[in-house]
Design a protein around this nucleic acid. Structure first.
Length: 464
DNA sequence: TCTGGGGTCCTAGGACCC
DNA sequence: TCTGGGGTCCTAGGACCC
């Protein structure tokens, strides 16, 4: 429970995070429009650098539209390994302020400052936040915007208020005056639908919302949402900062470059996604009882089908089997745009459950013969004889296997990154975070001297 | 403009149980 | 013959977040 009288909650939000890491590691992109996201025909923008935002490019926009708005921006597929590493360093710095750190994503977290600091007032909290911002810049080369307030809600709104590279401290006495004129859309949880519903009954600002009738809000938005939003608007938000929340589901999904209708094709892709889900479950020691598939059709309508098992599972074969049965019951004739698989109802399971699982496995094997991935699926073998696979997902490697932005190393020219590829060629720029802007060279895309590489090391000691 | 991939939380109806 | 109230579990759909 947070203390409404003290500014004890800090929210940190790295500025244009993915794009900023790219500009840090690629000198030729500094000061230029950079867009990170899906680079295929159906991709959307994950992050646009501030230079790209000038052109009207923003998150969740289709990349095709972004390309029309700014054809000369750099369009990169993203290097999550590098982003995770930077994120980890920032979270470590946050932990130096307090043991209570709640990450929301790679680039955002709440920190409960009261857990590490006595006698907090606005001035002291502001000084702590300012030192943190300097530490992030010194260690990672990136800027971070920070909000400090008495609650999660206000701290988050504050961090967004003067981005980028901003610190906004909201003393509790000034909270109401700050919130009241802001749009309700500033409240996390108020999206387009809720925003439009509120606007239709004349509620546009947080001040309007604070004066609204609770019964009417509940009728309009439901019990939970209605009461919570009213409380937020009135400055009431006792949600505590909760570190390390347990995962509730694990899933994988893929949008295809072209809608698919072939069941064997879909089944094979389902199997590969089930493999990934199983691997992630196993890696984190989790298993779950409910298997869900998600099918997005040609017209973007989306349906989910799920089945809850009597026991928990994390094996690829079981997930594949039950997901496959669910898919069998779905009409795919008109075309499937996206397919996904997930497992939920996760939890820690007792020895008895694990034993039951082993027995089920044994039964499976008696019924179906031993587990063997080559024999289990029918897609691979028959794929050769059947009609050619009609579409490739755009997510995984494009032509030649090279993705824009990818780190590479060349036997003769050293480390660099893929600027583009196609028509049997790949263009590489040879530079790194601590070099001047590098030269570009083009190779055959199967040149044996060119190999994928780890992200370049960043050395704070060699940063301006 | 034509919509990613990974999640969380809420609602509502029906089955089933007491 | 027609009727209750509450609780839990499951399924499906939808809003929302980064």
């Amino acid at each position: 429970m947070t203390d409404p009288t003290r500014p004890g909650v800090m929210h940190l939000d790295l500025d244009a995070f993915f794009a900023a890491v790219e500009q840090r590691d690629k000198p030729s992109l500094r000061g230029k429009p950079v867009v990170v996201g899906g680079t295929g025909g159906r991709g959307v923008v994950a992050t646009a650098s501030y230079e790209a935002r000038v052109f009207g490019i923003g998150s969740a926009m289709p990349t095709a539209r972004a390309r029309r708005l700014c054809p000369n921006a750099a369009y990169l597929a993203g290097r999550f390994e590098a982003y995770r590493a930077v994120s980890h360093e920032v979270m470590e710095l946050a932990h130096e302020l307090s043991p209570l750190v709640e990450p929301l994503s790679l680039d955002e977290a709440f920190v409960d400052l009261t857990a590490g600091h006595d006698d907090l007032d606005a001035e002291r909290a502001g000084a702590v936040a300012q030192r943190f911002r300097a530490a992030v810049r010194a260690r990672t080369g990136l800027t971070v915007s920070v909000g400090v307030a008495a609650s999660k809600l206000v701290a988050k709104i504050a961090s967004d208020l003067r981005k980028p590279d901003a610190l906004v401290v909201v003393p509790p006495a000034e909270q109401e005056a700050l919130l009241s004129p802001l749009s309700v859309r500033r409240i996390p949880g108020v999206g387009t639908v809720t925003g439009d519903r509120l606007a239709r009954s004349g509620v546009r600002t947080i001040g309007d919302l604070a004066a609204a009738d609770e019964g009417e809000l509940v009728r309009m938005l439901g019990k939970a949402h209605g009461t919570a939003l009213l409380a937020y608007a009135r400055g009431v938000d006792p949600r505590p900062v909760v570190p390390e929340r347990e995962a509730k589901s694990v899933s994988a999904e893929e949008t295809f470059a072209v809608d698919l209708t072939d069941r064997r094709d879909l089944g094979e892709r389902l199997r590969r996604m089930a493999d990934r889900v199983a691997a992630r479950l196993t890696a984190s020691g989790l298993s779950g009882r409910t298997v869900t598939i998600k099918v997005r059709r040609y017209d973007f309508s989306t349906l989910n089908r799920s089945r809850t098992l009597p026991h928990a599972t994390n094996t690829a074969r079981e997930i594949t089997r039950y997901a496959g049965e669910l898919l069998d019951a779905v009409d795919v004739a008109d075309g499937v745009r996206l397919l996904g698989v997930g497992v939920s109802g996760l939890g820690e399971f007792s020895q008895a459950d694990l034993l039951a699982e082993l027995e089920d496995e044994l039964e499976d094997e008696l019924e179906d013969g031993p587990e063997d991935p080559e024999e289990a699926g029918d897609g691979h073998e028959e794929g050769k004889e059947g009609p050619p696979v009609s579409a490739q997902p755009y997510g995984p490697p494009a032509a030649g296997g090279w993705r824009p932005g990818q780190d590479v190393a060349h036997a003769g020219f050293g480390p660099g990154w893929v600027q583009g590829s196609g028509a049997g060629r790949v263009t590489v720029r040879f530079e790194g975070p601590h070099t001047p802007v590098g030269r570009v060279r083009t190779f055959r895309d199967d040149d044996p001297d060119l190999v994928p590489a780890d992200p370049p090391a960043f050395d704070p000691g060699r940063w301006p």
